[in-house]
């Protein structure tokens, strides 16, 4: 998933990026205000664009997030009925707060998606691996995490290839009702899972053959990461903003309501 570049986000230490992503996620989960959430989304996407991530790549991520982004605001009014009523239809009551809360929740999920993408798109897997190890994760665990992330595009490709193979045998995956189409996916799902498990097994054996899992010798690293003074400056600046935002939220109650300031 990594898209090489020389932006400040690319050059930042992976530990800093992980810490920032977690802290920002905490802020996002603390706030409910729709305006705040939309601003956070715009800021995240803007930062990724400024970091040189192509619009095409951002569009691809947006396509993955789209079903969830649409489903949340659609379903929210079904379960949330507080606030001024905008519309009543059959047994459904659409309130202003439900609409705002739905949009805010949707924007939060999408922002969290782009936030994770910000780490993965701007961090070389070797750097992320070293970052996780320096944060205290055992090497085996860190490697498992980074390999899993690296495999996402590969699994996606496997699904595409399996879909093509089943279509080539005459299976129509695009027509029929929802249930029919879901049933039509079974051959794709089974073949893709078998294929993925098989390659996972092959990979684990290949790693073992290359000495992975040896514990009788101290592991050295060809690739190393270094914390720079710029990382400290970014950490301080962002840390201050995050502390201020959390203080405002919990000291004044600002941002707790989906539509009103407090």
């Amino acid at each position: 998933m990594y898209e090489p570049g020389r932006s400040w986000l690319h050059r930042a230490d992976p530990r800093l990026k992980l810490a920032l992503a977690v802290s920002i996620a905490v802020v996002l989960l603390s706030y409910n205000n729709v305006v705040f959430m939309l601003l956070a989304l715009a800021l995240t996407v803007g930062t990724l664009r400024l970091a040189g991530i192509s619009g095409q790549r951002l569009k691809a991520i947006w396509t993955i997030l789209l079903p969830v982004a649409v489903l949340i605001p659609v379903l929210w009014p079904v379960f949330y009925h507080s606030g001024p009523v905008l519309l009543t239809w059959w047994k459904l009551k659409l309130t202003a707060w439900a609409v705002a809360q739905g949009i805010a929740a949707s924007a939060r999920v999408v922002t969290l998606g782009f936030l994770s993408a910000a780490v993965l798109l701007t961090t070389d897997m070797r750097a992320l691996l070293r970052g996780l190890v320096h944060l205290g994760l055992p090497y085996q665990g860190a490697l498992t995490v980074t390999i899993s992330i690296s495999y996402i595009p590969r699994i996606q490709r496997t699904f595409e290839q399996v879909t093509e193979a089943q279509m080539a045998r005459g299976f129509d995956l695009s027509s029929g009702g929802f249930l029919g189409r879901a049933r039509a996916r079974i051959p794709v799902l089974v073949a893709a899972l078998v294929s993925t498990f098989r390659s996972a097994e092959t990979l684990s054996r290949a790693l073992e053959c290359r000495g992975f899992g040896r514990t009788d010798a101290r592991r050295t690293s060809l690739y190393e990461i270094h914390w720079r003074p710029t990382d400290t400056r970014i950490a301080v600046a962002c840390g201050l903003v995050i502390v201020v935002l959390l203080s405002i939220r919990f000291a004044t109650g600002f941002g707790a309501h989906p539509l009103l300031p407090r």
């Binding site: 290839q161 093509e164 089943q166 080539a168 045998r169 079974i186 051959p187 794709v188 089974v190 073949a191």
Partner: peptide, 11 residues
């Protein structure tokens, strides 16, 4: 069409 990888079609 017989694909390169048989695992892509066997289910």
């Amino acid at each position: 069409y017989v694909f390169q990888n048989p695992d892509h079609q066997i289910f």
